[in-house]
């Protein structure tokens, strides 16, 4: 049974105005096959948590730890983390000019498996996943994310999730910018990955609507760099009705 544990994580970034504290003691534990939704207002530190798990050099870990089956993730380079089984679906996937989706996927798969995939089954897998995500065949020969619409970029992230088969995935606002059809297609992709590989998911979202298609086992409310409240999926329903005001008032009082 795989487990991803985040313990008392403090993270800062360097800004022009000096060091800015963003995460202020995050504790989270995710078991394989579990879906944890992280919800919170803009600027509460959700993307910071996602990037810190993936190892983005901009974010500086002041203290705390991230353990994947007991191994210290913070000691690993970005690519080592991916090879250890972590995946980040980005809020804003970047364009890579001159590198085709096909070339990129094969290179990534080879890096993660430590050997090139068997060509016949690989081509079949790629095609099947693209069909499932309603991505036209022509995307395979286009440059990664170049000229993709917002929704197409998100599908491309889930395509990678399905093909690279990580143990834990952090989905950073994968739902934002998707119309309802695309939202369903992307959600199905995540649910398929979970069913097929026992994927554990950290689902970062601002809105509750994706939770209609991806059922969370736990909901964590993120405010001002830490988890302010946690519960089951009923907590999401409550947030849908009440919004984040209840949490936001607190720091002003204190």
């Amino acid at each position: 049974m795989s487990v991803l544990e985040i313990k008392d994580l403090h993270v800062s970034v360097e800004t022009d105005q000096g060091t800015k504290q963003i995460l202020r003691g995050v504790d989270l534990s995710i078991n394989e096959g579990e879906i944890h939704a992280i919800m919170g207002p803009n600027g509460s530190g959700k993307s910071t948590l996602a990037y810190t798990i993936a190892g983005h050099p901009k974010y500086h870990v002041e203290s705390g730890s991230i353990l994947l089956d007991g191994a210290q993730v913070l000691d690993m380079t970005v690519d080592e983390r991916a090879r250890a089984g972590l995946f980040l679906a980005m809020q804003y996937p970047v364009e890579i000019p001159g590198v085709t989706v096909t070339n990129f996927l094969r290179t990534a798969k080879t890096a993660i498996d430590g050997e090139a995939p068997a060509i016949r089954t690989w081509i079949k897998d790629v095609r099947e996943s693209m069909t499932n995500l309603r991505m036209d065949k022509s995307f395979a020969e286009r440059n990664v994310n170049e000229g993709f619409s917002g929704g197409e970029k998100k599908r491309n992230e889930i395509l990678q999730l399905e093909l690279l088969k990580p143990r834990f995935a952090v989905l950073d606002e994968t739902d934002s910018g998707l119309d309802v059809d695309a939202l369903k297609i992307v959600s199905e992709g995540v649910n398929r990955a979970k069913a097929n590989t026992g994927l554990g998911v950290l689902l970062i979202t601002h809105y509750t609507r994706i939770l209609r298609y991806i059922k969370p086992d736990f909901v964590h409310v993120f405010v001002n760099g830490r988890v302010a409240e946690q519960g089951g999926s009923e907590l999401a329903d409550r947030l849908e009705d009440e919004g984040y005001d209840r949490y936001l008032a607190a720091p002003n009082v204190g």
């Binding site: 993936a54 090879r83 890579i96 001159g98 590198v99 890096a111």
Partner: peptide
């Protein structure tokens, strides 16, 4: 650096990620 991060976050080691980006840039 964001391109590099994206490729590394998919398991591709840094030197290979650099090669991929430069090759892509010049392949036009």
């Amino acid at each position: 650096d964001e391109q590099l991060f994206y490729l590394q976050a998919r398991g591709i080691p840094e030197d290979e990620a650099r090669r991929l980006v430069v090759r892509g840039f010049l392949s036009e």
